[in-house]
Design a protein around this nucleic acid. Structure first.
Lengths: 240, 240
DNA sequence: GTCACGAGTGAACACCGTTTACCAGTCCAG
DNA sequence: CTGGACTGGTAAACGGTGTTCACTCGTGAC
C-alpha cells in the first residue's frame, strides 16, 4: 500500500532538500535571507518550482519553524534522557536552559512562535506542539515526585479557578498521552497557578534577552539567567 | 532666532505627515505594510521624496518607535498626574496598568517596540526613551520614599555587580534630569536588581497576554493581571 | 503506443528599497 | 534685479522579492 515509487522518493528528497537549504540560509544569514529565489538558486532550480512543494513562502517558513521546534524537542529529550529520572529539578533546569539557548540561537523563530500578535502567521502554540509537551511532561514528573511550594487552592484568586481547572484537564490529557498516569491529588489549582507564574518569569527573562530589552546593557547574560533560574527554582521549592 | 519660515513649517508638516501615515499603516496593517512606497502613495508623493526626511526605512522605523514611546509616556504621565505625589504605590500600579492597557490596545506598536529582534527596526531601548524615563522616575520616587524589600548587596550575584552599578549610574543621571535629586544610599545594588526582576515579570505577563501565549485560554485576563500585580507588589514590599 | 500527469521552466506582473539625474521653484547676495 | 545656491520633489532605473501562468518534457500506467 504505502510503497514508495521512485517518483515519490524523488519528491521526498526534493522536499527535504528545500527545507534543508532554507534552514541553512536561516542559520547562516538570518531570516531575511530565506527567500524562495535564494533557495532555488542554491538548489539549481527555479523559484516557481518550489510552489510544487509549498503553497507560499509563509507556508515554508511555518514548516521550517515546526522542524526546528521538533528538533529542539528531540534535543531536549536526549538531554533529559541523560538525567536520572528521579532528579526532577535537574530536568527542569535542563528544559529552561534549553529553551533559552534555543531562543537565542533562533530569535526569528522565537519571535514567530512566541512573540507574534495572534491571528496572523503564528501557529497556535497550544499544548500539542512537541515543545509544549516536553515542558508539561517535566512539570508532571516534578509534581509527581516532589512536594512543591504552592499556594493553597483558597489562596488562588477565585475568578481564575475555572481557567486553571480547565488547564488541569488539558494537562492531564497531555500527560496521559506521554504515558504518565498521575493521581489527581498532585494537581491542586495551586500547582497549575505556580506553573503559570513560572512560565511568566521564564518567558519574560528569555524574551527580554532575545529582544535586547533589558533596561541596561547586560555583559553577562548567562549569569543573569542562571541567577533568575536559581531564584525561581527556590521560590517554587525545587531546591533542597 | 527660531522663527519658522513658511518653508520650514511646510517641511515640518511633511515630516509629521510621513510619521502619521507610517503609524497608520503599522496599526491597521501590521509592520510588513510599513513601506516607503505605501507611505508615499498614501501621501500623494513618490517614494524617493521620503529620503529628504529619513535616511532609510530603517531610520524611519526607529523614529516611529520613538514616537510610540513618547505617546505611551504621555499617556502614563497624565495618569500619574492624577495621583497624589506621596502615594508612590499607587503610581507604580498606575504605570503597570497603563503599560498593560496600552499594550493590549496597541499590539502592533507593542510588538515593534518591545518584541522585535534587534538590528531591524527596533531602536536600542535605552534609558533615554520617554517610556523608560517614566518607569525610572516612578521607581526613583518609590525608592526615595519607601523602604522596599530587596536583597542585600552581597546576596546579588557578584558577576552582575558591574552591570548593575552601571545601570545605577545611568539611572541617577536620568533621575537628575527629571529634577529628582536622591541620596545615593537609596540605590543599593539590590534596588536595581529588584527593578530588573520587577520588569521581567511585568513584561512577561503583558507580552504573554498580548501574544496569547499563556498555556491555556484565560477567560479573565484582567483578574490574572491584577493577581500578578498584587503578588509582585507584595513581593517587593510595596504594600502595607 | 498513447495518454495523463506532474515536476520544472521562462516570462511576466506587481511589488519593494535605493540611487541617480534632473527640474522647478524659493531665497539671498551682489 | 539677477544669477547662483539650495531644496523639495519627480521620473527612471537597478536589482531584488513573491507569485501566477502557460508551457514543456519525461515518466508511469493502461
Amino acid at each position: 500500500m504505502t510503497e514508495t515509487t521512485r517518483r515519490d522518493r524523488s519528491r521526498d528528497d526534493t522536499q527535504q532538500e528545500i527545507r534543508r537549504v532554507a534552514r541553512e540560509l536561516l542559520v547562516n544569514q538570518g531570516r531575511e535571507a530565506v527567500t524562495l529565489r535564494a533557495i532555488a538558486r542554491e538548489m539549481g532550480i527555479t523559484a516557481p518550482a518550489i510552489y510544487r512543494y509549498h503553497a507560499s513562502l509563509e507556508d515554508l517558513l511555518q514548516q521550517l519553524c515546526l522542524d526546528i521546534c521538533t528538533d529542539l524537542a528531540a534535543e531536549l529529550a536526549t538531554d533529559l534522557a541523560a538525567i536520572p529520572e528521579q532528579d526532577t529539578p535537574a530536568q527542569v533546569f535542563a528544559v529552561c536552559r534549553g529553551f533559552r539557548a534555543w531562543a537565542l540561537r533562533h530569535p526569528q523563530e522565537f519571535s514567530l512562535v512566541f512573540a507574534s500578535p495572534p491571528g496572523r502567521g503564528a501557529p497556535t502554540h497550544d499544548l500539542n506542539d512537541p515543545f509544549g509537551r516536553i515542558f508539561l511532561t517535566v512539570a508532571g514528573r516534578v509534581l509527581a515526585t516532589r512536594q512543591l511550594a504552592m499556594p493553597a487552592d483558597h489562596e488562588v484568586p477565585a475568578e481564575l479557578h475555572d481557567d486553571l481547572a480547565q488547564f488541569r484537564v488539558a494537562l492531564f490529557a497531555t500527560l496521559a498521552e506521554t504515558g504518565l498516569d498521575l493521581p489527581e491529588h498532585v494537581f491542586p489549582l495551586g500547582a497549575t497557578y505556580t506553573m503559570l507564574r513560572f512560565w511568566v518569569r521564564l518567558y519574560g527573562q528569555v524574551a527580554l534577552e532575545v529582544f535586547g530589552r533589558f533596561p541596561f546593557a547586560v555583559s553577562a547574560p548567562d549569569l543573569l539567567f542562571e541567577s533568575m533560574l536559581a531564584e525561581l527554582a527556590e521560590e517554587v521549592g525545587l531546591t533542597g
